[in-house]
């Protein structure tokens, strides 16, 4: 197997919606097996960056390599685990059962008339890990927001991806569910040797757990390996005001 230390190499990426430039000349190298956090203000272009990586938006210019392969080639042969930002889906229009939603993650393995038994088995295992298996026959739309989010995380994981991209996964989760989610991320990293890219506004969490932090506001503002290297006025520059660090351990109901 060919080895390559980078999971993602982005060069001179520029993305625009019509005449409005959302990302300008982005250069980014993210290494394999690590947990990368993407932060930035609303409208900064985080979701746009994610969609460009996934090939869902055609950039004006630029080059994206995933695990050493050109993006198109990689996407043809592999799936990337993806958790979209919640408001970008039309969930309520389609009365899908929870199990069907998770099966969306295995579309590539679908036979002509349905899914194989072993695919279903794996799906059930991952649903069990996320504690949503007992809801398999409920309508997805009837679940609470937090449970929906867990089902969507399961959907992102069922294809056994090498790369998992999550766009604001903890939005709508209560404190316990957030804690569970962070534990899950840890577990995933230990068990699956997976590279994770996660968009988040949860600055406290990001600096506790992430290996690198990428700040996107039209350009990549900062990309540091060690959180200690952050300049003092970093958040002020990024968001326009000082961000208070929220320590998760104090918000934990079990503590």
């Amino acid at each position: 197997m060919q080895t390559c230390e980078y999971c993602l190499k982005i060069e001179n990426l520029t993305v625009a919606y019509g005449k409005r430039v959302a990302l300008e000349n982005i250069n980014l190298h993210l290494s394999k097996g690590e947990f990368h956090a993407v932060v930035g203000p609303n409208g900064g272009g985080k979701t746009t960056l994610v969609k460009a990586i996934l090939g869902l938006i055609k950039p004006l210019s630029g080059n994206i390599m995933i695990f050493g392969k050109p993006q198109k080639e990689y996407l043809k042969e592999n799936t990337i685990g993806y958790l979209p930002q919640t408001h970008s889906t039309n969930i309520s229009r389609v009365p899908l059962k929870v199990i069907d939603v998770v099966l969306m993650g295995c579309m590539g393995y679908r036979g002509l008339t349905g899914y194989r038994k072993d695919v279903i088995k794996r799906v059930e295992k991952i649903m069990d890990m996320l504690e949503v298996l007992d809801r398999r026959n409920n309508l997805f739309d009837d679940l609470s927001g937090g449970l929906k989010q867990r089902v969507l995380i399961a959907r992102a994981l069922v294809s056994n991806p090498e790369l998992l991209i999550m766009d604001e996964p903890t939005v709508g989760l209560d404190v316990k569910a957030q804690k569970d989610f962070y534990t899950l991320i840890k577990k995933l990293r230990e068990q699956l040797n997976i590279t994770i890219i996660m968009v988040s506004h949860d600055v406290g969490f990001v600096f506790e757990y992430a290996d690198t932090v990428v700040c996107v506001n039209k350009r990549v503002h900062l990309h540091t390996k060690h959180k200690d290297e952050l300049p003092k006025d970093f958040f002020n520059r990024l968001y326009g005001y000082d961000v208070k660090f929220v320590d998760h351990r104090h918000g934990d109901p079990d503590a």
Binding site: L56, L75, I80, R93, V94, D100, L103, M104
Partner: peptide, 23 residues
């Protein structure tokens, strides 16, 4: 429709995701 009803339902629910999983 027998072959593609799932694909079309998924596509309705989440267009981007379906395009990603099924080019």
């Amino acid at each position: 429709m027998y072959l593609f009803h799932d694909h079309l339902a998924y596509f309705t629910m989440d267009e981007d995701y379906t395009k990603l999983m099924y080019p």
